[in-house]
């Protein structure tokens, strides 16, 4: 794990990606910091962070696109897979290196609230809670990016996939507001989601029978449930979609509320995608 971690971290700074990632974050946060705090004199650092969160859409794909795709492309994954290190420790090393780059940026942001204290009263606890939220959001985005990078051999495809996924997640809150909270909408939405899930399963596992069977059975159950108790569906789709929206979960933390549920949410997203990455690498050995 340490060997992979060290090599990976170093590679971000012998190439342009690490600097580019940091530059994206620093520039955007710097601009908002200057306008909000230095120019207009707002005392809440969280304003800057919630306005800057969108930059992850661009910065994370740049950072994560090569992490596993490039190993596969250069065939260096064969070196890793034939070494006595386990897949888990390899992936943890990689993820650790990615987090370290993010931590450099977050470490610098930690100094910003202190600058503000020079000009007046600042609630540091709120500011640092926001920074923690910003870090967790970034860490979750990175885990998504790492997983998508493990799926392909091409950096470009990995970057585009990551951007699209994060963009979709980011746009969900706008999308949600168009949806009516009626039971029928939820029902149709869920039916659609089930269809997409089994379509995805079919593309990954290439097993038409199981995919079709699973789809029919689950759609039937859904219909049955809707026929029996349609009130259950009211507002369900919105709840489901908000679970997929990483950025909305940053909201509470950004407002300075140290919400355990939100922290748990981010940690489970991270764990889920790290686990998926390990599974996807392992799966590749069998295909």
């Amino acid at each position: 794990m340490k060997a992979v971690y060290k090599r990976e971290l170093k590679s971000y700074f012998t190439s342009v990606t690490g600097f580019l990632f940091l530059a994206f974050l620093m520039v955007v946060v710097g601009i908002y910091f200057t306008t909000y705090h230095l120019y207009y004199g707002y005392p809440y650092f969280s304003y800057t962070l919630s306005s800057s969160a969108f930059i992850y859409l661009l910065a994370v794909p740049v950072l994560t696109m090569r992490v596993l795709a490039e190993e596969r492309h250069q065939r260096t994954d064969q070196l890793l897979f034939t070494s006595p290190k386990s897949l888990t420790s390899i992936v943890m090393g990689k993820y650790g290196a990615l987090l370290s780059v993010l931590l450099i940026a977050v470490g610098i942001f930690c100094g910003y609230p202190l600058i503000l204290t020079q000009f007046g009263e600042v609630n540091l606890a709120m500011a640092y809670t926001a920074i923690l939220g910003f870090f967790l959001l970034g860490a979750a985005c990175i885990s998504v990016g790492m997983f998508l990078s493990s799926l392909t051999e091409s950096q470009v495809i990995a970057a585009i996939l990551t951007f699209l996924t994060l963009f979709f997640s980011y746009m969900l809150s706008t999308l949600e507001s168009f949806l009516s909270p009626s039971a029928l909408t939820s029902f149709l939405g869920l039916a659609g989601i089930l269809f997409l899930l089994f379509l995805l399963y079919f593309f990954l596992a290439k097993n038409l029978v199981i995919a079709l069977l699973g789809l029919i059975v689950s759609e039937f159950l859904l219909c049955l449930l809707y026929a029996v108790k349609s009130t259950l569906f009211e507002g369900l789709l919105a709840k489901l979609l908000s679970a997929l929206n990483l950025f909305v979960h940053f909201g509470n933390l950004a407002n300075g509320i140290l919400d355990g549920a939100e922290i748990l949410y981010f940690l489970s997203v991270i764990l889920f995608f790290v686990f998926l990455t390990i599974r996807s690498l392992d799966q590749r050995r069998f295909s």
């Binding site: 012998t14 250069q74 070196l79 034939t82 070494s83 006595p84």
Partner: peptide
């Protein structure tokens, strides 16, 4: 794997090292 040394068809090298 501790007992193994392997040179694959394409040497697994990191070009930027």
């Amino acid at each position: 794997k501790r007992m193994l040394g392997y040179l694959p068809e394409i040497p697994p090298l990191y070009p930027d090292m």
